[in-house]
Design a protein around this nucleic acid. Structure first.
Lengths: 268, 268
DNA sequence: CGACATTTTGACGCTGGTCAATATTGGTGG
DNA sequence: CCACCAATATTGACCAGCGTCAAAATGTCG
């Protein structure tokens, strides 16, 4: 169940309403099976846009595979990252308000989404009143996650933000059916920084600090979570921590060339 | 719960669906006049709670009069302010997701809300399919405002945050039918700071700095906006220097974020 | 009038932004 | 296959914005 949802046979390009419920992680709506409505899928390659700020709102999207980033662009053109949707997340809900998308959504990897057309939202509810509740709850969940992010940015220090971001992202990867302990980040340090309200340098330093304290192993975008629970609760992690078992940084400059596989082998 | 009963007796006011639309500032739904459904009002005194984190979700609320603050409380008990809803704003949408309220809503002044019961959301849509769109758009608007706040906190300095907060709050007061140039803040400095991710001292200093530069006049909670447009676009205001268009904190040179432009171009 | 909450202002230190140099990766062409 | 280049990551040095601690001023309510 790693890739495309098993929509029976060859054409895997459509999803039933019941499958959409499971994908969202919400309890299946009553009577979903009687409805023969199916939703079209859409594939995107890395770098492709799904929505654009200001463009007419046509549909909601449920991520079925791959990673996205959503962001707004201010007047000067630089972007502020709002989130990193992955499998099971809703994309495009901010377009309902003015019938115009209020943010960009770009695929960070090859991806696939379930397309929920605006017409379906408007009319399917007439024949199936549980469907609307599904959408309500999905949008409402967006609000809740947004608020928890606000508490992250508003109160915590840089290292704690990065730590919780990693724990949160790993959890979501786990729920999406991927291994949660070893992840490959689909986004750059700059994008993480924009998301957390930090600069890319600070993010990089935070990664190093977390690695020094043994909570994670980092090699570029490959991250292994050594102590997820600690990451999740981390409030403060000062610079100079206790000497950790393992390689001390700085004693072998050229030893840095260890690959990701090498590190895993050495640890075992 | 008991408070509902307490205020529901006798002279409690009611609103029609069309009135709710006007209150929300959204285009009136077609066929709204044919429906005889009316929504009960509920009055609150200053300090009274409208929703509580964790309590069962029963209804959405549209603020008709007065000011609120919404906040979440972490494990240690101190609160993080999420927003300051006033007339026309939706309150309680984060409860749709898990049928439990995810935040507190407390009246900062004597207030009045329109109660939209959960049952109405679920069943009225059947008989009037435009009604659900009204709720969709109201919730979606919450998302959009949340995102704009994120950009505020993530990128701007303390004085710019306070300046834009004042401009934004004044605008909303204007839309709510109050004079926008002279407002009485219903919240404390600490609550503003929590909302903006700052300490109360920093908020106070920002007020003084803005007053020194002549953009506002501040006397405790009485604020007079002398130059709202300047406040709205303020990005940096160091000390007593004239407001010059300089680089904002957290900004990077334009050449460094060519990535998203490339992405947009490539994806088109 | 007195106790308390809120606000203002000051001094100091640390976190994190800024500038800068280097290392690593990935892609392209000779 | 290797040289070359752009994008990304890492690390260091510097310092300023904002949090922290502290005290005084102003406002509020009994």
């Amino acid at each position: 169940m790693s890739t495309v949802r098993a929509t029976s046979h060859a054409d895997a390009h459509r999803s039933t309403l019941a499958e959409a419920c499971r994908l969202l992680g919400l309890p299946e709506v009553a009577g979903a099976r009687q409805v023969d409505t199916t939703f079209l899928h859409r594939r995107l390659k890395a770098g492709q846009r799904l929505t654009s700020q200001g463009e007419p709102f046509e549909a909601l999207y449920i991520v079925a595979e791959g990673f996205f980033k959503t962001f707004v662009a201010d007047e000067t053109g630089n972007q502020l990252v709002l989130g990193f949707p992955l499998r099971g997340d809703l994309v495009g809900a901010d377009g309902l308000c003015n019938h115009r998308h209020a943010s960009y959504a770009v695929a960070l990897t090859d991806a696939e989404v379930v397309v929920v057309p605006f017409r379906s939202i408007a009319h399917l509810g007439r024949s199936l009143d549980d469907f609307e509740q599904l959408i309500y709850r999905a949008i409402s969940r967006e609000l809740v996650t947004d608020h928890s992010l606000r508490s992250l940015i508003g109160t915590l220090g840089a290292e704690a933000r990065v730590a919780r971001f990693l724990a949160n992202f790993a959890d979501r990867c786990g729920k999406a059916g991927r291994p949660a302990s070893r992840i490959t980040l689909p986004m750059t340090r700059q994008e993480i920084g924009s998301y957390l309200g930090l600069t890319l340098e600070t993010v990089s330093r935070a990664f190093s600090a977390l690695a020094d304290s043994g909570l994670v192993r980092v090699a570029q975008r490959e991250v292994e979570m050594c102590d997820i629970d600690q990451l999740r609760v981390l409030q403060k992690l000062h610079t100079v921590t206790a000497p950790r078992a393992g390689a001390r940084r700085g004693d072998r400059p050229t030893r840095r060339n260890v690959t990701w596989v090498d590190m895993l082998g050495a640890a075992a």
